[in-house]
Every structure is written in C-alpha cells, then in structure tokens.
C-alpha cells in the first residue's frame, strides 16, 4: 500500500508539464503503483484542458493545414491500445533481474542508470540487502527516491513499494532495508551523498579538497 506521495505542487507541475524530466520520471514510476495519484493527475490534466480553453484564439493561416495534411500522409496511425509503457524500460529491458550491481558499502549496492556529461546529478538504482543498513548520510542537494522492490525504514518512517520520498540536503538519515527482501529504489540525486557518521565525517574532510569553489558556494546557499 503506497503511503508516501508526491506533494500537491509536484503533481500540479507534473500535470502542467513543467517539471524537470528526472522528477517527472520519479512521479511516473510512482503513478504506476498509485491509483490515488493517477486519479489526481487525471483531474489536474482536466484542469489543464479547461485552462487551455480559456485562452484567446490566435488566427492561423489556412495554408498550415495543407502542410499538416502532407505530413499526416506520411505517418501511420498508432493502435488504440499502446503496449505498457514502462518509463524505466530503456535502462532496464529485463526489469530488475541480473543487474551488475556495484558494491558501495557493506550491504549497499548501486546500479547507475545515467549521469550527465556535465553536472553532478546522478540517476541510479540503489539496493540494500535484506536487513542491511546504509551508513548515516545526508545529501549536498535534493534526493528523490521511489521504492521499486522490498522496503526500507529510517528515522522518518517506513517505505514500501511505490512510495515516493523527497529529502533535501540538510536531512541526515540511515536507511535500513526491511527483513526478508532486498530493497531496491530508484534514486535521483542532485548532488553527491554526504557521509555524516563518525567515520563518514572523517572521510568528508578530504572531499572538500576535490570540490570546486563553485560547488562549495552552491552548498552554502
């Protein structure tokens, strides 16, 4: 049962089509598990339709229509029912099976889906083995997580499949996978993870040596 949902503003911006694609991706994965938010997005899209109709009409040259007709002659109409569109399908054609996970900590693994050529964000799957605990950490930027399999808990609550969680940078947490099942999450991180435990803090002292001035400036804001 999905308990944690995107905020109303996020759903509004999603329906309006003006959120970043990574956030849209996380919302659309959540929607696959959450009938309640699907209904909400449907209503918000209806609102979009209503607003669109309130716009004034802008005259269009009729010649445009001829051009449109030329183009439709070249396209094939799509079938009535589209095959199930899995937003993660491009990265995970075989679902969550047989991925080559990269070990990050004792029971913590990562499978990177996408990192930018420039910039510091990261889109990845994270796995904590059943019953495992991740190190205490925070983030230099926002982290968006959607649970894909199993579940985890931290100081703030318990999260099951489909749950959508946004944590901002100054939030430290220590996720623990539920017993019996490995927990796999889709995670989008605006910026790298920041370790905050006793050992982590010691390691973090060295990170600053590698961060650019710009990064440091953006952290302090």
């Amino acid at each position: 049962m999905v308990q944690h949902h995107p905020s109303d503003d996020t759903l509004v911006e999603y329906a309006a089509g003006n959120i970043k694609s990574h956030l849209a991706l996380c919302v659309s994965v959540h929607l696959q598990h959450c009938p309640q938010c699907r209904t909400q997005v449907q209503k918000l899209s209806t609102l979009g339709g209503a607003l669109l109709e309130t716009l004034p009409c802008e005259a269009i040259d009729d010649a445009i229509f001829d051009r449109i007709l030329e183009r439709v002659d070249l396209v094939h109409p799509e079938p009535a029912v589209k095959e199930d569109a899995n937003p993660l399908g491009a990265w995970l054609p075989d679902g969550l099976a047989d991925l080559s996970w990269r070990k990050q900590w004792f029971k913590l693994y990562e499978y990177v889906l996408e990192v930018p050529k420039q910039g510091r964000w990261r889109l990845a799957l994270q796995k904590i083995s059943a019953g495992g605990i991740a190190p205490v950490h925070g983030h230099y930027g926002r982290e968006v997580t959607v649970v894909l399999q199993g579940g985890f808990s931290d100081e703030m609550g318990v999260y099951d499949v489909g749950d959508f969680v946004i944590r901002d940078g100054n939030h430290n947490h220590r996720p623990r996978a539920l017993e019996n099942t490995d927990c796999i999450c889709l995670a989008y991180m605006e910026a790298p993870v920041r370790l905050t435990g006793p050992v982590g803090r010691w390691l973090e002292r060295f990170r600053d040596m590698f961060l650019s001035q710009e990064d440091l400036a953006s952290q302090s804001t």
Binding site: Y14, G17, K20, S21, H22, A24, L25, S28, V41, Q42, S45, T46, A85, N86, P87, G89, A90, L113, E114, P116, G119, W121, L123, Y188
Partner: peptide, 15 residues
C-alpha cells in the same frame, strides 16, 4: 540536465 527518456513514457496520456 535532463535524463534521457522518451516523453511519452513520462507524461502518459490520461486514462
């Protein structure tokens, strides 16, 4: 700074 995924997967048509 966009992730590479087809838009139709992200913003499906209402139903």
């Amino acid at each position: 700074g966009e992730v590479h995924v087809e838009n139709d997967f992200l913003w499906s048509l209402p139903g």
